[in-house]
Amino acid sequence: MDNLNETILAVVRGVVKEKNPELTAIRPDQLLVEDLGLRSLDLARIIAKLEVKLDVDPFAELVSITSIRTPGDLCAAYAKCFEDEEESAPPEESEPAATRSRPGLESQRELRKRARD
């Protein structure tokens, strides 16, 4: 989980840094818009980057994008994806989320199916 949070915060930090090079440190409780100066398109970029890195998109169905106000909210949203997956994964596959191979489309489809059910 630490690895996952670090991956997410590193991506947020990267996008924030592009917009405001002076803001090098970010906290999970800072507001993305008010404190970090991000706009909705920046959030879309963050989510796109994370989808490439993690191969999941929690906002496709599991989580509402409007509930995301802080980097901590983002971490919680992605954790939800991987928690659901770890519960159903065999023990030998339950290595840290950010380092294991991408869960792949099949698993994401399964996640979405479970969310609907």
Binding site: L41, A44, R45, A48, K49, E51, V52, D57
Partner: peptide, 9 residues
């Protein structure tokens, strides 16, 4: 495709 283009800016 935007998911690929946005990270590249």
């Amino acid at each position: 495709c935007l998911k690929g283009m946005l990270p590249q800016a």
